[in-house]
Each structure stands twice: as structure tokens, then as C-alpha cells.
């Protein structure tokens, strides 16, 4: 096991810079994530209890394994909370493929991460709409759906979504596979009216499975 580095002064991270990248709510609950610069929890190690917009500022070139000890987090491909999103719930992730899933465009980079503050497994609700701007057929969901089509949704797309409470992760393919989109009641006012708002990596409105995030 490598040397533990000194955690940076994350609580005093300049508020103005945070606001530019992503308007983060102040974390309320206990969150804890430990990241490593080598696979299998080896190498340089650092613990965080709040958001990290750029792991390179902490002397890492990349994150190659991690453990989530408290709360739910979302990791990003790029610094500043951009690029592909990876939902990180409590547990051990020894290699990049433990969090990235199986995309054709696979990436081995995780450069920023933040807590998912509104995760609430019991109270989560989401309404999915057939078309963008909350138009067309709608379905109010409060459970996990590994295949929307198996449960009656007509096709492989969702046009827009409203989240009154909780936090959700939506996936491109059935069975929680493909691109991950983390959508939260406390971001965008809970309204995601077009697929372009799901994340900077979104390219289509294809969504075939949806689930609540476990805090």
C-alpha cells in the first residue's frame, strides 16, 4: 500500500469556481470516498468527503481504483464534472471497468467526482415523457425498471423527464448498460426537458432502463 497523501482543503474550495462548473448544493450528509492512483487499491491514496472538480490538483494523473464508504457519488470522465458519468454507490471498484460499464467508447479516466446529495431510495419519483418539453405519453415511476419496454413503454427513447424527488440513473440499454445519465431533483430544478440536458456526453434520447440511486 502506498503512502496516504494529505487531503486537500476541499471545504474551502473557492465557491465562485464551483458555481462556474456546476451549482452544487452544500453537502448535508456524511459522504466518504477513497481514491487510488493504481488498480486494486494500490498506490497513492486520498480520502474525500465533498466534491473534487479536478483530481490533478491533488497530484493524481488519474483514478484507477476507488472505494465508496458513505453516500452516493457520481464520477466524471473529465475535470469540471464533464464527459461520461459513472454512478458510484457504496462498495469497491478495483478497476475502471467496475464503474464504466461496457461502452464501445470505453474510457479509463475518472478526473472529477461529487456527492449525489438528493439520493433517496425510498422517496424517489420520476415522470418520463415520450417527447421533449414534457409532451406526449407520460409515466410516473417510483421503482427500478431494468427494461422499460418489458413493462409496457413503447420504444427505446425517452424525450424528457421531471424529477420531483430523489436521484435517478438512466441507461442507454436494458439491464442498466451503456451510457449512464445521473439525473437529480436538486439539479436543473428537477426538469430535464431535452436529452442535451442529461449530460455533456449525451448524443441521443435513447434510454432503455432506469433506476433509483442508493444513498
Amino acid at each position: 500500500m502506498g503512502e496516504a497523501a494529505v487531503p486537500p482543503e476541499l471545504d474551502t474550495f473557492p465557491a465562485a469556481k464551483m458555481a462556474q462548473t456546476n451549482p452544487l448544493p452544500v453537502p448535508m450528509g456524511p459522504w466518504k470516498i477513497t481514491v487510488y492512483d493504481q488498480e486494486n487499491f494500490q498506490g497513492k491514496r486520498m480520502e474525500f468527503t465533498s466534491a473534487c472538480p479536478n483530481i490533478m490538483e491533488c497530484g493524481f494523473d488519474n483514478i484507477r481504483s476507488l472505494k465508496v464508504e458513505c453516500g452516493a457519488w457520481v464520477g466524471y470522465e473529465h475535470t469540471g464534472f464533464c464527459g461520461q458519468q459513472f454512478i458510484l454507490e457504496r462498495g469497491e471498484y478495483p478497476r475502471w471497468d467496475a464503474w464504466s460499464g461496457s461502452n464501445a467508447y470505453h474510457i479509463e479516466r475518472l478526473m472529477s467526482f461529487r456527492p449525489v446529495c438528493s439520493a433517496n431510495h425510498k422517496e424517489s419519483k420520476i415522470t418520463v415523457y415520450e417527447k421533449d418539453n414534457f409532451i406526449g405519453r407520460q409515466w410516473e415511476i417510483s421503482d427500478d425498471y431494468p427494461s422499460l419496454q418489458a413493462m409496457g413503454w413503447a420504444n427505446n427513447e425517452v424525450g424528457s423527464m421531471k424529477i420531483p424527488c430523489g436521484a435517478w440513473v438512466c441507461y442507454q440499454y436494458p439491464g442498466y448498460r451503456g451510457y449512464q445519465y445521473v439525473l437529480e431533483a436538486d439539479h436543473h430544478g428537477g426538469d430535464y426537458k431535452h436529452w442535451r440536458e442529461w449530460g455533456s456526453h449525451a448524443q441521443t434520447s435513447q434510454i432503455q432502463s432506469i433506476r433509483r440511486i442508493q444513498q
Partner: peptide
């Protein structure tokens, strides 16, 4: 499950 799988990685 019911749905579309366009490539092996899906």
C-alpha cells in the same frame, strides 16, 4: 430483457 442491443458491448 425486452429491448434493443446493437453491439456486443450493450
Amino acid at each position: 430483457e425486452k429491448g434493443e442491443y446493437p453491439r456486443w458491448d450493450s
